[in-house]
């Protein structure tokens, strides 16, 4: 277990290094931060002073070393927009994104297991066909559009729920449903198909033959085997949500999380803040990946972590 964890952490370091290199190449070699960050009206003297301030006048190799050491010390510089350390802004907004992901993904996970299992009990039945059809819709609707339609319907026309922003529990409903929709569709399809496969296995027949109640066979025996691919996909959903797929939902609902902050940083040409967000999320994803591997081990003892 120890050796495995070390290897995974080593691989995680590679990810962080890769992200650092790409961010460096994109911001220092392909793009010009002076051009991106300063307004068009800036004088040449101001441009030169800014370039010197962030170290652009030095050789590229020195710049890279400085860049890496800054990242390693979690020093991302000051956000030009907020005029305070970029990391502070990130850490302030991160919990909001995590809450949104928690609500949305939690909803998807809680609904997908029973829905998928019920659909799998009678493949081809009306519950099954409805589930598949709704699943296809969930995969086909663009998230931002679905969110806007819900705002129009539930917030504007009916006036039941707030249109945007963050606050009490009512503010969570629309963004969480919007975020959950595609994940729920993918998860339901997966639970359904792997449950159908499991229920056709010999061990289910054996368990039934020795007199176990069908409910128990489904809920305990088959469900446990379904959980392995389920956790893989749910973990992937969590990571891709973190990797920026909340940006769209946060933009539509003006949810003050990392995604909205990233869009604001782009609008304000605040490259340092954007860098800090990308870097923090990269580290977070690495940590979650290692955590997920440990969870697999707990669910399925057959998986040897080597």
């Amino acid at each position: 277990m120890g050796g495995f964890l070390l290897r995974r952490i080593g691989q995680g370091l590679l990810v962080v290094i890769g992200v650092t290199v790409i961010v460096f190449i994109a911001t220092r070699m392909v793009g010009d931060p002076v051009k991106v960050m300063l307004p068009l009206s800036a004088t040449d003297a101001q441009r030169a002073a800014f370039a010197q301030q962030i170290g652009l006048d030095r050789p590229i190799a020195t710049q890279f070393v400085d860049f890496v050491s800054d990242m390693a010390r979690l020093d991302f510089g000051d956000s030009l927009w907020q005029r305070r350390p970029a990391l502070d802004v990130v850490l302030e907004r991160l919990p909001n994104t995590l809450k949104l992901i928690g609500a949305g993904l939690g909803l998807a996970i809680l609904l997908s297991l029973p829905l998928g299992a019920i659909a799998a009990l009678r493949p081809g039945g009306w519950v099954d066909r409805t589930t598949v059809f709704v699943g296809l819709f969930g995969l086909s609707l663009p998230q931002f559009w679905f969110g806007l339609l819900m705002i129009v319907f539930f917030a504007v026309t009916l006036g039941w729920l707030p249109t945007s922003g963050m606050g009490g529990a009512r503010y969570y409903i629309l963004p969480a449903i919007t975020l959950a929709l595609p994940s729920l569709a993918r998860l339901v399809m997966l639970v359904r198909s792997s449950m159908i496969d499991e229920l056709n296995q010999q061990y289910v027949r054996t368990a039934r033959a020795k007199g176990l109640h069908f409910k128990r066979v489904v809920m305990v025996h088959a469900m446990r085997n379904t959980l392995v691919p389920f956790v893989t996909l749910a973990g992937w959903e969590l990571i891709s949500a973190l990797a920026g797929y909340t940006v769209v939902v946060e933009t539509v609902f003006a949810w003050p999380g990392l995604g909205l902050t990233a869009m604001q940083a782009i609008q304000k040409s605040d490259l340092f803040l954007l860098q800090a967000i990308v870097f923090t999320v990269a580290v977070l994803i690495v940590v979650i990946n290692v955590g997920l591997d440990v969870i697999y081990k707990l669910i399925d003892p057959r998986i040897r972590l080597a």
Partner: peptide
Amino acid sequence: AFPGLLLIL
């Protein structure tokens, strides 16, 4: 394992 969309942005 990259933060895909954020890096794209």
